[in-house]
């Protein structure tokens, strides 16, 4: 089942990349990034069955970093929304505040 889990992980990662490439909504873009992180977690856990428990420990760290990333990223989205009144990435062109 390891190889099959890696297949599923690859497909989920590609769907996440597709979402990041096609969507313009900043929030949905973030969700696609979370999906990609989850896909990588799945492959870590599948390979932990072959190579020992350190893969699972790494997944724990990835989850922590994902939580931190979601908190900071959404705070940035709120801050940008306050400035531009939109989360449309097509209309947010300047990094200047």
């Amino acid at each position: 089942m390891i190889r099959e889990a890696l297949y599923v992980s690859a497909i989920l990662f590609s769907i996440g990349v597709l979402g990041v490439l096609t969507r313009r909504n900043a929030l949905i873009l973030f969700m696609c990034v979370e999906l990609m992180l989850n896909a990588v977690n799945l492959s870590f856990i599948a390979l932990a069955r072959l190579h020992g428990v350190s893969g699972q420990v790494f997944v724990l760290f990835v989850m922590t970093v994902a939580a931190a990333e979601a908190a900071v990223g959404l705070a940035i989205v709120i801050s940008v929304f306050r400035h531009y009144r939109t989360v449309d990435l097509g209309r947010i062109r300047l990094l200047r505040g």
Partner: peptide, 18 residues
């Protein structure tokens, strides 16, 4: 899927955290 691959704790953490 995590639970089926033997990572019971991470399955629970996935539901709680994510």
């Amino acid at each position: 899927l995590y639970v089926m691959l033997g990572a019971h704790f991470l399955g629970a953490a996935q539901v709680l955290v994510y």
